[in-house]
Design a protein around this nucleic acid. Structure first.
Length: 446
RNA sequence: GUGGCUGUAGCUCAGUUGGUUAGAGCAUCAGAUUGUGGUUCUGAGGGUCGCGGGUUCAAAUCCCGUCAGCCACCCCA
């Protein structure tokens, strides 16, 4: 009697071998490329204090945090207190991204290098509604550089993710680049109050999808005066025209500084892997509230959301210590990358199962089979021993089922001679082979 | 959070206007074949028709509710 659901939790998945090898294939490229840029690995705990997590991502982000209920006495005490609030019931949560844990680490280990370059590949959790390419448990592949406001750092994180995508075979992705200060200047110039900046930017972000009228409608719906919306749209449309960035960079006023910064960033990035991919996009707005300077987002044809995002966050680390430390980072979403690669058939042939199934005939003792398998494995072969006693037809069928390309038949005759009847299942070729030559036989035919 | 679609065997799905004991393919297992597989043939196991209620002589089928999954939007990686 089994009424327990065997499905994984909504928004979370089991990965069987074919999934695992594809994920590993991508992660191997990510790791290799990140390390080639001089980033060093970091891993942090799954669980963080809620005080670490709360207030860093904006109100929507706080809502999506997985919280961990108190245990035992603490829980009893909280429940007994009458009307417990969320804060009374939990003081820990699952990490929501890798940037905030990094900020905590930088504040906690004061002896890190002045320019701490770390990469981190770990799962994060968001209590979001699952959809295509969106999960509640997913992997982020982050690169960050702390301790400098240099444009080199910005360009390097852009270059690192661009190099990863190129290494995986992508050619048609775009890295949208914008600047928080520039957005703020647009919003202010249009006569919109600072506290409504977020609302306005969300509407603007949709310009490509719902069009000019759609954005105006949405702005009106959110209570913005018509001429405010009109002014904002007009300014942004002008900013999208070719040469607008250089023009703004040359014009005194609130647009000048961020425009100059972006122009410089694009100029520097041009000599790295992000060349050809980086584009100025004045409508790009990102949801996370900790960004302060340049912001990035990667898009790719055929993908609804983004493959990755990032930006500069010069005030986040300062929330964990007195001394502010500037930082910039970029995050690739492993599942998004996999989704596109899957749809486009971008994976090379990948296999990991056993190369050889060792078929023990009924009259061969089990310990002899183990001895032979051990000698074969010592040659570097991946060997599975058929566990049950069975006739040969069944064992060969099983070899096909698990995708093993070779079968090694071990009967009393072979055992006496120290050989194996090695069979290539694709061609049917079979030869009596000394046990220690098994890898030669296999490698010659693989 | 909004809108839509779908829930029948492990998987993919049929199932007529509501009508006897709910089917097929794939997969699994067994046998034909106890030292030679992929093909073929024979057979077997496997179902609370998502769940709950209603209408009806009769419900997988119609109605209501609910849950789950998928798609689009929103937001994000």
């Amino acid at each position: 009697m089994s009424e327990i659901s065997t499905k994984p939790q909504s928004g979370m998945r089991d990965f069987l071998a074919p999934d695992v090898v594809r994920r590993r294939h991508v992660l191997a490229v990510v790791q290799r490329v990140y390390e080639s840029f001089g980033f060093q690995p970091l891993e942090t705990p799954t669980i963080e204090n809620l005080s670490t997590l709360l207030g860093k991502y904006g109100p929507e982000g706080d809502q999506l945090l997985y919280r961990i209920l108190h245990r035992r006495e603490k829980l009893q005490r909280a429940l007994a207190s009458g009307a417990p609030t969320e804060i009374d019931l939990a003081d820990e949560g699952l990490r929501y991204d890798l940037t905030v844990p990094l900020a905590r680490v930088v504040a906690n280990y004061r002896d890190l290098p002045a320019f701490y370059k770390r990469y981190q590949i770990q799962p994060v959790w968001r209590a979001d509604r699952p959809a295509k390419g969106r999960f509640r448990e997913f992997y982020q592949c982050d690169v960050d550089i702390t301790g400098t406001t240099s444009v080199i750092a910005d360009a390097e994180v852009m270059g690192a993710v661009a190099a990863v995508l190129q290494g995986l075979g992508f050619a048609d992705f775009a890295i949208h680049v914008n600047h928080r200060e520039l957005l703020r200047a647009f919003v202010t110039a249009a006569g919109i109050a600072n506290e409504n900046e977020g609302l306005a930017l969300i509407a603007l972000d949709k310009l490509d999808k719902i069009g000019r009228d759609g954005v105006l409608q949405e702005l009106a719906q959110k209570g913005f005066a018509n001429d405010c919306g009109e002014a904002l749209l007009h300014a942004l449309e002008q900013a999208r025209e070719p040469g607008a960035l250089t023009r703004m960079a040359a014009t005194e006023g609130p647009f000048q500084a961020p425009s100059r910064a972006l122009a410089e960033l694009l100029a520097v990035a041009k000599d790295g892997p992000a060349a050809k991919h980086a584009i100025f996009d004045p409508t790009l707005a990102r949801g996370l509230s900790y960004y302060t300077g340049p912001i990035f987002e990667i898009t790719c044809k055929g993908l609804a959301g983004s493959m990755g995002g990032g930006g500069r966050y010069d005030n986040l680390i300062g929330m964990f210590q007195k001394k502010p430390v500037p930082a910039v980072g970029f995050s690739l979403g492993l599942e998004r990358v996999l989704l596109v690669m899957e749809e486009r058939g971008m994976f090379p042939p990948l296999c990991i199962g056993p190369q050889v199934l060792l078929c023990r005939m009924g009259d061969v003792p089990a310990d002899a089979a183990i001895r032979v398998a051990t000698r074969m494995r010592a040659q570097g072969l991946r060997v599975e021993v058929y566990a049950d006693a069975a006739n040969m037809g069944k064992m060969l069928t099983y070899a096909n089922t698990i995708g093993a390309p070779f079968a090694a038949i071990l009967g009393t005759a072979e055992l006496a001679q120290g050989t194996l009847a090695l069979k290539c299942l694709a061609t049917g070729e079979q030869a009596a082979t000394p046990i220690d030559d098994a890898s030669m036989f296999v490698n010659k035919r693989s």
